[in-house]
Design a binder for these strands. Structure first.
Lengths: 195, 195
DNA sequence: ATTATCTATAGATCTATAGATAATGC
DNA sequence: ATTATCTATAGATCTATAGATAATGC
């Protein structure tokens, strides 16, 4: 096996797979608490009862660990592109309101990712290109070429995504004051979706 | 002068005020590039031709420097609460599209601020309480108790703020693909504002 | 043999304090 | 006298590499 190859999950032992999963869960938590730059490998390692050097056996660098977290927990990957529907989006927001940890991890990473040379920058840039395209497709399936208010699907898509992200920050900072699922449903009504 | 007092700007010399302003500008830049946690005092100091220790003469801790940046550059402070109007918001977004540096600083800080114990967390939490209230007031002045689409000002306000923030992330990551001012005008039309 | 983990450690940082020196303003 | 700045340095970190040791699986 040449340097740089990834072991396929079929050749990696079950034990090792469990360890990897434990580490990813711990990394998710630590990133939620401190961001990527603030998350130390030692803090992640400690949570799974390893030394920092022991952790580096499973993920060769800190950046490799981040990439693995991003790929495993991307909510947009969970639903095939062609199967998104507007009412599913409402459910996703409701579901997110029940898992502040993951929302916080991704919100912290999104914020950091706009800084120069951040290892998650390419991931988010590409993801948003894809998510806007998916959302445009969803809107087109629901409304055709023109939404009730006159917007094209392509112009409404970035707004839909912006509302989801923006509400998450307000909600994370002050969950008592912001009813995220309600606010998102309000936005869907603005778009002309029947409640 | 007891420990912890701030020197008023009238007792601080002009020279010193200039130095402070230089440092704040440099800090704004470095935070935009690396976030708060990633910004070192040495990097800020170098930009103004000081040593890191020299910088600490002007701001006693890294956190004090952050607080000064936040207070000086808060765009919402620039317009008195009672003077906001919907069309001013559109102009603000257009203006922001011409100053990616400041937008990037605040977007990076907002992202970091959701992590635990972040020194900007209280600032953003309180700011959003205030900004939502201002926006509700603006909407009420424009539309009264019910917007054209049936929402109350209080329920539309968090959406307005969310769209502004969310669009900024998409735009910072991929300015070619996202026409931020256009998208925001689209949203204002959704709300029922006459273009 | 391969995999998992550890100890030791290099080499960079980082923030903040202590105390000296130079410049400025009454 | 006060203000601005510097050198020296303490005391914590942090990531990553090297190499030893133990455990696992053919």
């Amino acid at each position: 096996m040449s340097y740089g190859d990834r072991m396929s999950s079929s050749t990696r032992s079950v034990r090792s797979g469990e360890r990897r999963a434990e580490i990813l869960r711990a990394a998710l938590e630590v990133i939620a608490e401190r961001g990527y730059r603030g998350a130390s490998l030692a803090a992640v390692a400690e949570r799974v009862g390893l030394t920092q050097q022991g952790l580096l056996h499973h993920f060769p660098t800190k950046e490799a660990l981040l990439v693995a977290v991003l790929e495993e927990r991307d909510q947009w990957d969970a639903v095939p592109d062609s199967q998104w529907r507007l009412d599913l989006l409402g459910s996703l927001v409701e579901y997110n309101a029940m898992r502040p940890g993951i929302v916080q991890t991704f919100s912290a990473l999104l914020g950091e990712s706009v800084t120069e040379g951040h290892p998650a920058r390419a991931f988010f840039t590409e993801r948003y290109v894809g998510v806007r395209a998916s959302m445009a497709q969803v809107l087109r399936a629901e409304f055709g070429e023109t939404l009730p208010n006159g917007l094209t699907p392509e112009r409404a898509a970035p707004l839909l995504v912006a509302v989801m992200d923006g509400l998450q920050y307000q909600w994370l900072l002050d969950p008592e004051s912001v009813d995220m699922p309600q606010a998102f449903r309000d936005f869907l009504e603005l778009l002309g979706v029947e409640g």
